[in-house]
């Protein structure tokens, strides 16, 4: 996709988000993404951006897809994360093995509950599913989209990664730190209709998570931008000591520097070569770091209002922190980066 096309797409996503997400952002945090929003994301071609057209997806190229994730995140990191999960986790894991499921994903008819905790926790211990004849039964911890019609889960006992097509029951839990709009909960599985997506389930999940570099970068940058936009608007009108906040040096310079970093990383993202592993990793590491710092500053410059959810800035702060834990393996990424720089395994002690 050319730069001009990316710009056009960005405008379309922005217009959509202003109409369909902006006023509902707090409701999404409380209640999750509802079916109506899911389906309008689908009808715009955003939900199934990377899903092949034969399954009803829009088959958009990588840069177009990153633009969608990035722009959605400036309004709701949860909605952007959902699009990322569908296109970069669910679709690649399911692949061609379940065409009907893929079609339902692309159209927003169904969602898939997923738990990445096993790979991110690094100790592969969470899920234990017991086999009884052809039936599999057990509980899955911390799963996003717990109300999903389907579930993908790793079974500790046989190491396989399963797609469950029936017998998936979501259990609501505390909304958690971040991505509350993704509806995090746990799952009770009692299923006899399932498919093995991979016999080496842990490796399959790890490969998917490690392949999220650019998506996570786009999500992180959108999160930073969403918070910075709000703060920049706010400090123009909020006065202390009879002057607008933007007139104070530390306020203006902190927000401008963060925005400048955002702009630099964004243009890097727009043109990054998808085969350049070092550039992809660099973008992720720097963007997540920026998201944490920028959202913190944005919250701080809102003063007491920043601490209250109605203002709509604290969610970016929570999500930026959650991003680095829920969709990234920071220690592993540090080692990957060191290897890129040193050319050999380094930094593991």
């Amino acid at each position: 996709m050319s730069m001009e096309e990316q710009d056009l797409l960005r405008s379309a996503v922005k217009e959509f988000a202003q109409k369909s997400i902006q006023d509902k952002a707090l409701k999404i945090e409380h209640e999750g993404v509802d079916k109506a929003l899911l389906q309008s994301l689908a009808s715009q071609g955003f939900l199934g951006a990377r899903i092949p057209e034969k399954y009803g997806g829009s088959g958009i190229d990588l840069h177009g897809y990153l633009t969608i994730v990035n722009e959605l995140a400036t309004f709701s990191p949860s909605v952007a994360a959902l699009v990322m999960l569908v296109n970069s986790v669910h679709a690649p894991l399911i692949g061609d093995s379940e065409p009907e499921v893929m079609k339902k994903l692309a159209s927003g008819e169904a969602t898939v509950s997923t738990s990445l905790s096993d790979v991110l926790e690094g100790n592969f211990s969470a899920t234990s599913l017991k086999k009884n004849g052809s039936n599999l039964k057990g509980a899955v911890n911390l799963s996003s989209l717990y109300r999903g019609e389907y579930a993908i889960a790793l079974n500790r006992d046989d190491g396989h990664l399963y797609l469950f097509k029936d017998g998936v029951k979501g259990v609501e839990e505390d909304s958690g730190l971040s991505f509350r709009g993704l509806s995090n909960g746990s799952l009770e599985i009692d299923s006899s209709d399932y498919t093995v997506l991979s016999e080496k389930g842990e490796d399959a999940l790890k490969a998917v998570v490690d392949n999220l570099d650019l998506e996570v970068a786009a999500l992180a940058l959108g999160t930073a931008k969403g918070a910075l936009d709000k703060a920049i608007d706010y400090v123009k009108v909020r006065k202390t000591f009879e002057r607008p906040l933007k007139d104070y040096g530390p306020v203006a310079s902190a927000l401008s520097r963060h925005m400048a970093e955002y702009l630099a990383l964004s243009s890097y993202l727009e043109s990054v070569d998808e085969n350049d592993s070092r550039a992809k990793l660099t973008l992720k590491v720097l963007s997540v770091d920026l998201a944490k710092r920028a959202t913190k500053a944005a919250l701080q410059y809102h003063g007491g209002y920043g601490y209250i959810e109605d203002t709509g800035v604290e969610k970016f702060y929570r999500d930026a922190m959650g991003l680095s834990i829920l969709f990234q393996r920071p220690h592993h990424d540090s080692m990957r980066l060191s290897k890129e720089i040193f050319g050999e395994k380094s930094g593991y002690l």
Partner: peptide
């Protein structure tokens, strides 16, 4: 950051929110 997944599901996510 250090405790990762177990921190986010335990007390520490609250500490993070409270501290601000």
């Amino acid at each position: 950051e250090i405790t990762g997944y177990s921190g986010i599901t335990g007390d520490l996510e609250r500490f993070f929110r409270d501290s601000k």
